[in-house]
Design a protein around this nucleic acid. Structure first.
Lengths: 333, 333
DNA sequence: TTGTATGCGTTATCAG
DNA sequence: CTGATAACGCATACAA
């Protein structure tokens, strides 16, 4: 049974209020009383009850990053950046993994949520202040911070074109019949059209989700066709990693026979061999903006939702051809 | 300002207690009253306040997985297993990323912690019921669930010996002068000695931590020596992935010139090319045991700490030689 | 500068 | 079966 403010107050011979003042670092407490209280706190090993404090103040001081997939390449870097940004604003960050099916049924005990999933928020989470992470623009129902995926798809494709690829395939996640197609695919189509290249049938694949295995399957499907592509644009690093593995297992050399580029700038891609070229988001920017937007929404729940577009840069590594490698090609906003 | 039990009670023309009974699914409520209350709950969009509930009951229904490194290969699989095990016991799981330096200063708002770090618990976390994940045996100060790392090191080394490797190097994390050496290294040394092979100087490297970059650096240091090893035993998949990259960058073929094996059984290793051989823990077992131990400790805080040894199996994949590949070699307990 | 009293939203105790 | 009322631990008007 934990010690409470009252226990400390009794031992230190002061009132509850004074102990509260000392614990919360309030001024206007005499040095002598403060010393007595601190001694009592130490002696009893007092720790404030977070739930009581939150109930009273209405603030828990915690934000949640809600993810439907914990094994996502790049999640580590994003989490680090978000935790840092939150800490600088006086908040702690916890990760809340939710099942795809029972999506976010109960809200985590936090002041607000960052959603890294395109799932519907669910009855629990959507009552909380909420910022979505990922592709912008969104549907305007919530604040959203992410890179311009259409631009990312265009830039990735342009990079492949510039390094000599001519039969470029693309892999994105989501239902096959989605309309409009997802932004990376639109950017890809735009770049291919601008270059005056023909659209090859079956060269656009839709994976079930952004998992390595989905990318592997999608890439196999394309590589099984008689008209091999010479490059893959993948809408995420997870898909790209799966696609690279499919290429190896098919006996193809990367990038000589098949170039691969992803989107995300994940750490894991850096540790593939060959290292994965990728359109990297500025995670520091995203983290700062996402936390700032979320805190703003907590303060003003009724403000109009805004989209924040984060800068991106193309990281040209060994999985794509090109004389400029290794290096960063500045593109995007 | 959210709606409370009182608002619902007022609208439904019943007492606060009755609403509470309905919300918590208690029996002894007439169907008619129940219907009225449920209608009011829906109309007002009532959601129970978790903090008030926790304050009152003393139980939050949440467990925390405390990690010092979020970019760990295998963390995804472990998290999934733990979240599942917790859910089956009626608990939710959140991940609490902590900085290595300001380790776990504040306790997360949960009923207990699973610690996936060897850092000292810190003043906040160590007051909570706590189970450590990782190598067993531990120091006896806390419950601990993990595989037998000494056996894992022995089995990994034996596998390399059985597939023809004769100059085997080892990489583990931690300070160079730690005594006793970490268990994987001890198992490695034991297997090498048993095989009657000489100890090659400089073939045991200590990395700063279990990060890919640490494995990369350590492997480079070994490969820079005139007496190349023909295999690496790595104490984690993160180290092994870094070591594999170092081998490639040195122009070596895996496994022909250099075999590599890790410990952990991470998903990420599966998606390396060649796929990483690894000593895989039974994450389902670990998750079930860890959650069970933690709940037991919550119920009886003063019970003596116990160590639980989880089964492990050697996954022989393409990063090690051998005719039996691909396949699982049953070893361990 | 410090103490007293009240309420945050919930559940539990006890009457009716 | 239902209703009034007291706690849970903390922070804060307000009083002293």
């Amino acid at each position: 049974m934990p010690t409470t403010l009252r226990d400390v107050a009794r031992l230190a011979q002061v009132s509850v209020k004074t102990v509260s003042n000392v614990v919360n670092g309030r001024p206007h407490v005499s040095a002598e009383v403060r010393g007595r209280v601190e001694a009592a706190v130490d002696a009893l090993g007092y720790r404030p009850n977070r739930f009581a404090r939150t109930l009273r103040t209405g603030r828990s001081g915690a934000l949640a990053l809600v993810v439907s997939e914990v094994d996502l390449p790049g999640l580590g870097g994003l989490t680090r950046a978000l935790a840092g940004a939150a800490a600088r604003r006086g908040y702690r960050l916890v990760i809340d993994p939710v099942d795809a099916d029972r999506a976010a049924g109960h809200p985590p005990p936090v002041d607000g949520c960052l959603l890294l999933t395109d799932l519907p928020a669910g009855p629990g989470v959507d009552a909380l202040p909420l910022v979505r992470l990922g592709r912008v623009p969104g549907d305007g129902t919530a604040d959203r911070v992410g890179i311009d995926h259409l631009g990312a798809g265009r830039d990735a494709t342009a990079h492949l074109l510039a390094t000599g690829c001519r039969r470029i395939a693309a892999i994105d996640a989501g239902p096959d019949d989605a309309a409009p197609p997802p932004p990376v695919l639109r950017g890809y189509a735009e770049a291919v059209r601008t270059a005056g290249l023909p659209r090859l049938p079956g060269h656009v694949q839709r994976a079930a989700a952004h998992r390595r295995a989905d990318g592997y399957r999608a890439a196999r499907a394309v590589l099984a066709r008689p008209d091999h592509p010479d490059a893959f644009v993948c809408a995420s690093d997870a898909l790209a990693i799966g696609a690279m593995c499919a290429a190896f297992d098919a006996g193809l050399r990367v990038p000589e026979d098949l170039a691969v580029i992803g989107v995300g700038g994940s750490e894991e891609g850096h540790w593939m061999r060959p290292a994965l070229s990728t359109v990297a988001a500025d995670t520091g920017f995203i983290a700062r903006q996402a936390v700032a937007r979320l805190l703003a929404r907590i303060a003003r729940p009724d403000a109009a939702p805004v989209d924040v577009v984060a800068p991106h840069a193309l990281l040209s590594r060994a999985s794509t051809r090109g004389a400029d490698r290794p290096g960063t090609v500045r593109v995007g906003c």
